[in-house]
Simulated scan of single mutants.
Amino acid sequence: MKQIEVQILQQSYLLSCPEGQEARLLDAVERVDTAMTRIRDAGKVRVRERIAVLAALNLAFELAERENAATAAAAQAEAGATPLPPSASQRLQTLVQRLDDALGTNGMLFE
């Protein structure tokens, strides 16, 4: 196991990584850092924990959409239909709003 020091939202983390998987880990770090930076820079959320939760939800939602789109495309291809691109923006905004409402005004998931 190799250890790699990375920066996410300007904070250092020492992560363990299997040999030969450094590029995949660094790609994942870049995705997380980009997602968290976008949320922070939007100016509405400042608490690091809340930013991390929102970024994780956004990334999980994107992954689920890709998986759903791939499954739907395969089913449509099997049926001979042309796949339609997913329209997830409104659903994502609704999810983020529900999370904001659940977290409340202090931005803490747990107290």
Rank of each mutant, 00 (worst) to 15 (best):
A23P: 02
A28Q: 03
Q21T: 04
L25W: 05
E62Y: 04
P18M: 04
R24G: 13
I51T: 06
V29C: 04
A52C: 03
G43Q: 00
Q90E: 14
Q7C: 09
Q93E: 11
E22Q: 15
V29W: 05
A102I: 01
A75S: 05
V32N: 01
L26H: 07
R38D: 14
P18D: 09
T34P: 00
E49R: 09
I4M: 00
E67Q: 14
C17A: 04
Q7V: 07
K2Y: 03
I39T: 11
A88M: 12
Q3M: 11
G107R: 04
L14A: 11
E62G: 06
E111S: 11
Q76V: 03
T34Y: 02
Q97R: 12
S87Y: 05
L59I: 15
S87N: 10
T37F: 10
A55G: 04
Q3V: 15
Q7K: 12
Q90G: 06
A55T: 01
T105Y: 07
E62C: 08
R38L: 13
D33F: 02
L63Y: 12
R98G: 07
Q76E: 11
R98C: 10
L15T: 03
R91M: 08
E49G: 15
I8K: 01
C17R: 06
Q11K: 13
Q11F: 06
L63H: 11
D100P: 01
A73Y: 01
M36S: 00
R31T: 07
Q10H: 14
A72R: 15
A102R: 14
A28Y: 05
L15Q: 00
L84R: 12
M108V: 04
Q90I: 12
M108D: 09
R48N: 10
P18T: 06
Q3E: 11
A77K: 14
T105H: 11
R24K: 13
E78N: 10
F61D: 02
T94W: 10
Q76F: 08
K2S: 03
A77Y: 05
K2F: 09
F61W: 14
L25K: 02
Q76D: 13
N68F: 13
L14K: 12
A28M: 07
R50L: 06
A35S: 15
R50V: 04
V96A: 05
T94N: 10
K44S: 09
R66P: 03
R91L: 08
D41V: 03
I39S: 03
